[in-house]
Amino acid sequence: MSVSLEHYLVVSAVLFGIGLWIALAKRNAIIILMGIELMLNAVNLTLVAFNRFVTLADGRPALAGHVFVIFVITVAAAEAAVALALAVSVYRTRSTVDIEQIDLLKR
C-alpha cells in the first residue's frame, strides 16, 4: 500500500519521543544535546512531509516547507556549536559534565 502522510507523521512522532526521552533521562550534558538534535530532526521530517502531501494556499512558494527546514538546520547547527562550547567551558571549570553535579543553584 502506498506511503501516505500519516506514516511520516507517526515516524517523526516516535523519533521526537525518543529524543525527548534521551534529553530527560541522560546524565551527560553532551548526550542531552544529542537528544535535542534528534527532536529537531523529527520536526524537520514533519515539515518536509507536509510540504510533500499538502497543497499550500496560494501566494506562498511551493517549497515553503523546505525553506523552513533549511532555517531549522542553520539554527540547530548554531545552537549545537554554542551548547558544546558551553559544555566544554563548564568542563574546564568544574571538570565534569555530569548534570547531577552541576547544580550550582542548590548550594
Binding site: 526521552w21 530527560l24 533521562a25 546524565r27 548534570i99
Partner: peptide, 28 residues
C-alpha cells in the same frame, strides 16, 4: 559532538542515566 567528547575525556565515559529514566519514558 565528537570533538566535545574528546575535549571532556575525563568525565565518565559511560552512558548512564539519572533516576529520571522511568518518568522520562512516561512523559515522552
Amino acid at each position: 559532538v565528537v570533538f566535545a567528547i574528546m575535549l571532556t575525556p575525563n568525565s565518565q565515559t559511560g552512558n548512564s542515566e539519572t533516576r529520571m529514566v522511568g518518568p522520562g519514558l512516561f512523559v515522552a
